[in-house]
Design a protein around this nucleic acid. Structure first.
Length: 262
DNA sequence: AGTACCACCTGACGGC
DNA sequence: TGCCGTCAGGTGGTAC
């Protein structure tokens, strides 16, 4: 599930529940998810500290510690977060469990073990080291045009390329392409600056709307593709059968009537 | 620079 | 019922 709007939901949940609470203990039940940090080092960094505030860049969530430094969470393909009280409510596939002094717990859930846990001194340095592009919610029109013009290759893989633009994944990119009326295999070099500007505008709108709905697809507007993004789906605009193809190894859903190839 | 393929993982689903 | 292939909202490495 985790693309930008989902990570933004996790951030909101942590902001409203898990800030300014002293961390009593940390358990990591799957060491494989630890990326640049060992378990002892992670425990040293977190124990006795509290989360002060949160930031997000692309699909990465940064939790600032009052002792200094950041816990950096990435969720992979399957990830979630839950704040709860009773030990019996521990979610399945909890890979890291943070227990607070108030008795509540924060579970980092990661079924497929494709997510990663890091620590960082500064988000900016981490973002640079990972070669992440500008965040999709922050990027301005000029910067967007700059990032995508003069490139070769197909539109969809470029939008999903985290070093060009950070935050979009497979399904939100499908939505943005649907709403801008472009076929996923359109060639980037055929786009005029004004058309890139239009895609930027659509992207901003889609992110604004879906973040506001906390990434809950059932609550998306009826004119959105995502609720119909399955084999039997019909285009919410024209009723045509939604088509499914592979673009850059990833499954893409699109409306052959509404989305033109450039 | 762009693309293809593989690897990393678990679980759900459909076909036989 | 059980086994098997396929697929899933991500990323990193390698090779061409």
């Amino acid at each position: 599930m985790p693309e930008l709007p989902d990570v933004e939901r996790f951030r909101t949940a942590i902001n409203s529940n898990a800030l300014h609470k002293k961390i009593k203990s940390v358990q990591v039940s799957e060491k494989r998810v630890l990326d640049n940090v060992s378990e002892p080092k992670l425990k040293r960094a977190l124990k006795g500290a509290a989360f002060e505030k949160t930031r997000r860049h692309g699909k990465y969530l940064f939790l600032q510690l009052d002792k200094g430094g950041f816990l950096v969470l990435h969720f992979g393909m399957t990830g979630d977060i839950r704040y709860y009280k009773s030990d019996s409510d521990r979610p399945e596939h909890t890979r890291m469990l943070i227990e607070f002094a108030n008795g509540y717990r924060l579970a980092w859930i990661n079924m497929r073990l494709l997510g990663r846990i890091n620590v960082a001194r500064e988000p900016a340095a981490f973002v640079r080291a990972r070669d992440l592009g500008p965040d999709a919610m922050q990027i301005g029109r000029e910067q967007f045009r700059e990032a995508f013009s003069g490139r070769n290759g197909k539109l969809k893989p470029a939008l999903m390329n985290q070093s060009i633009l950070a935050g979009l994944g497979n399904i939100y990119t499908d939505e943005i392409l649907f709403q801008s009326g472009w076929h996923p295999e359109s060639l980037l070099k055929r786009f005029k600056p004004a058309e890139l500007d239009a895609i930027h505008g659509v992207m901003k709108r889609v992110l604004r709307v879906t973040v506001r709905r906390l990434g809950r697809i059932e609550e998306f507007p009826r004119t959105y593709l995502l609720p119909h993004r399955d084999k039997e789906g019909a285009c919410p605009r024209c009723g045509s059968a939604i088509r499914r193809i592979k673009v850059g190894q990833r499954t893409s859903y699109f409306c052959p009537q509404c989305q033109k190839k450039r």
